[in-house]
């Protein structure tokens, strides 16, 4: 009986310990996110965990508009990691209206909506 946890559980466990890793295909070299059982580029199950550089570029951004009494505005972005994978996240440490496609950002571990560990980003060089 297979007892190894699946890639979602492995990712979540690493993240809970403050470690952000993505997968890389040992067969074709493609980086993979979100975590998967097989490589979406070549179908290989030979996926290994690697540490990304954390460098990324904002691809698109939206600001969800909420009244202050409901928690106020917040941003949601799609970022492209240097390794070539895209993920949804949030950019902290800068005004929402200053976030735009092309902004260079760096990953860190922050808090998600329910207080769980989540990968978030800040502008490169600590701007804002």
């Amino acid at each position: 009986m297979e007892k190894e946890p699946g890639p979602d559980a492995v990712f979540a466990a690493k993240l809970a310990e403050g470690v952000f890793e993505i997968q890389k295909c040992g067969s074709c070299g493609t980086h993979v996110f979100h975590p998967r059982v097989i490589c979406p580029a070549c179908g290989s199950a030979n996926l290994e965990w690697v540490t990304p550089s954390g460098k990324a570029t904002v691809y698109a951004r939206t600001v969800v508009r909420r009244k202050p009494e409901r928690g106020g505005d917040y941003n949601v972005v799609l970022v492209d990691l240097e390794e070539g994978v895209r993920m949804m996240s949030r950019v902290d440490g800068v005004a929402h209206d200053e976030i735009a496609a092309g902004l260079k950002v760096i990953a860190s571990i922050g808090e998600g909506a329910d207080g769980q560990s989540a990968v978030v980003f800040r502008p490169e060089g600590g701007a804002g």
Partner: peptide, 26 residues
């Protein structure tokens, strides 16, 4: 979705907002 929920996008509106933002940028 699991990998989007932590960032609270409005479903489905923010997904289309991101597409609109990208179209305007590009």
């Amino acid at each position: 979705p699991t990998y989007e929920a932590p960032y609270r996008p409005m479903f489905p509106l923010s997904s289309y907002a991101l597409a609109a933002d990208r179209h305007m940028t590009q």
